[in-house]
Nucleic acid binder design. Structure first.
Lengths: 140, 140
DNA sequence: CAGAAAATGATAATGATTATCATTATTGGA
DNA sequence: TCCAATAATGATAATCATTATCATTTTCTG
């Protein structure tokens, strides 16, 4: 939490009550991937007058600072999750039956990146989403 | 072109003038990834009264039949491209400078899929997008 | 050729996000 | 401490892509 506050102030942002609440929501929902609307619903428990515009602005800033990951699955909206300390970019498997999202190990894409770099590209980032049927749904 | 017509009628759809025009636009733009709005602009050269709703409906049907791929890059809209004959799913590298999109070989993800299957998943599909700086932009 | 079914085009509705703007909160000096 | 400058907030309008609606037109089948 401390290093997050640091990043905020380094970015020239203040840790307001609203930002604190939104950060807490993100921390309390480890492993989930929340949309802006979902963040708002939960955050209003602690800050009932919170507006959706502030949620969007805050999530955007936090993502810009690398505190959150901003990902778009194959639906119309972005989802956010707390970034780990490490620099690594991770990936997802989404179950097409139950909709749950599973994390995928990093490093799996290294060989692909190397191939592309050979062709003269500088790789900045990559996003992989796999659609599958999860083990539980497979039992039905 | 013939096998596309076949697929259409097999799906219970008629090859109307509008659908023909939209298909031609997609065929004439090999290697590009067009949004619905872009398809409309080009298609209106041949069919000026074409409506955007028809474009959306047609692209959706063609994608449903596997004639087109429907992909969402990290922006708010879908883009479409003609699917190859092969079943394979391909992937993209997008240059963050010039915005151009490059195709990526298939097969690169096989090892990752195998890993996930070991964990009990049934893989249905996967989407990989890599953000990079392309060789040309790298020279600036 | 008629009549049913499908397709079209105009436009309204929707959902997510961004922009605007008046109000409120915060902060670093006098 | 108080005050102005600046940043942040919340309400709401605007925007953008997409989907839904519906009256009209087209197409196919008999």
């Amino acid at each position: 939490m401390e290093h997050i506050k640091e990043k905020l102030s380094q970015g020239g942002y203040k840790l307001t009550r609203q930002r604190q609440v939104i950060l807490e929501v993100m921390q309390d929902s480890e492993g989930e991937h929340l949309s802006a609307e979902e963040v708002l619903q939960v955050a209003r428990h602690k800050s009932p007058s919170l507006g959706i515009a502030t949620v969007y602005r805050t999530l955007e800033r936090l993502a810009g600072l690398g505190i959150l990951y901003k990902t778009r699955f194959d639906e119309g909206k972005y989802r956010y999750e707390l970034a780990d300390d490490a620099e690594h970019q991770h990936h997802h498997v989404q179950c097409i039956r139950c909709g749950r999202i599973f994390e995928l190990d990093e490093g799996l894409l290294d060989s692909i990146e190397q191939e592309i770099m050979k062709q003269g590209f500088t790789v900045i980032n990559h996003f992989l989403t796999i659609y599958a049927i999860c083990p539980e749904c497979n039992q039905d």
